[in-house]
Amino acid sequence: MTDAAAQTLSVVVEREFAAPPEKLWRALTRPHLIEEWLMKNDFAPDVGHRFNLRGDWGGVLDCEVLVVEPERTLSYTWNFAHDDPAYALESVVTFTLTPTHAGTHLRMEQAGFRPGQKQAFGGARVGWTQFLAKLDDVLARPD
């Protein structure tokens, strides 16, 4: 582990969903569904694909797909450019899906918060909890 990596923090949120992994995977990888629970986007589940997430608050996140293991793991960069280093963020979001007897366990980790980014870190903790609640609503709909 590098010194820089040792100094960063991660937000981890874990949830159980009553949906099977393939349904959860669709909600994580189809742009129209991502927009319903996360943000507007031009996502494609292809390693190396660069895309943007556009928040209702006017911010744009620059992202690149790093890992695609269908119905198992999805990882992408989550970068926000800002003049103030307290708000600029270079991080990686990783979703890990594990089948369970009742559906799917989802582990979301956003890694890369620097110690001085307390507001961004706290915002991510609250934000991901809200995003995943919206994801639950998307998954609750019949196919």
Results as ranks from 00 to 15, higher is better:
residue 3 D to T: 08
residue 5 A to V: 07
residue 5 A to R: 14
residue 6 A to S: 09
residue 7 Q to P: 00
residue 7 Q to H: 04
residue 7 Q to R: 11
residue 8 T to E: 11
residue 10 S to D: 13
residue 10 S to F: 02
residue 15 R to D: 11
residue 15 R to M: 10
residue 16 E to S: 12
residue 18 A to W: 10
residue 19 A to N: 09
residue 19 A to H: 08
residue 20 P to Y: 05
residue 20 P to F: 02
residue 21 P to R: 11
residue 21 P to S: 06
residue 21 P to M: 10
residue 22 E to A: 13
residue 23 K to F: 02
residue 24 L to T: 08
residue 25 W to V: 02
residue 25 W to K: 11
residue 26 R to F: 01
residue 26 R to Q: 15
residue 28 L to V: 03
residue 30 R to S: 10
residue 30 R to F: 06
residue 31 P to N: 07
residue 33 L to Y: 05
residue 33 L to M: 10
residue 33 L to I: 03
residue 38 L to W: 07
residue 40 K to R: 15
residue 41 N to H: 04
residue 42 D to Y: 02
residue 42 D to G: 05
residue 43 F to L: 12
residue 46 D to W: 10
residue 47 V to T: 13
residue 47 V to E: 14
residue 48 G to T: 06
residue 48 G to P: 09
residue 50 R to F: 01
residue 50 R to A: 14
residue 51 F to S: 06
residue 52 N to P: 05
residue 52 N to I: 02
residue 56 D to N: 11
residue 57 W to Y: 10
residue 57 W to L: 11
residue 57 W to P: 01
residue 58 G to I: 04
residue 59 G to K: 09
residue 59 G to P: 00
residue 61 L to Q: 08
residue 61 L to Y: 12
residue 61 L to F: 12
residue 63 C to G: 01
residue 66 L to W: 01
residue 66 L to Q: 13
residue 67 V to D: 12
residue 71 E to A: 11
residue 72 R to Q: 14
residue 74 L to H: 06
residue 75 S to Q: 15
residue 76 Y to S: 03
residue 79 N to A: 05
residue 80 F to Q: 04
residue 81 A to T: 03
residue 81 A to H: 08
residue 82 H to Y: 00
residue 83 D to T: 00
residue 83 D to Q: 00
residue 84 D to R: 00
residue 88 A to I: 00
residue 88 A to M: 03
residue 88 A to T: 00
residue 90 E to Y: 08
residue 90 E to R: 11
residue 90 E to W: 03
residue 91 S to L: 03
residue 94 T to M: 12
residue 95 F to H: 15
residue 95 F to S: 06
residue 97 L to C: 09
residue 98 T to R: 14
residue 98 T to L: 15
residue 98 T to C: 12
residue 101 H to Q: 15
residue 103 G to E: 13
residue 105 H to I: 05
residue 110 Q to N: 15
residue 115 P to H: 04
residue 117 Q to N: 06
residue 119 Q to K: 15
residue 120 A to P: 01
residue 122 G to D: 07
residue 124 A to R: 06
residue 125 R to E: 13
residue 128 W to C: 01
residue 129 T to D: 14
residue 129 T to V: 08
residue 130 Q to W: 03
residue 131 F to G: 02
residue 131 F to L: 08
residue 134 K to M: 12
residue 135 L to Q: 07
residue 135 L to E: 08
residue 136 D to M: 04
residue 138 V to D: 05
residue 139 L to W: 02
residue 140 A to R: 13
residue 140 A to C: 05
residue 141 R to G: 13
residue 142 P to C: 02
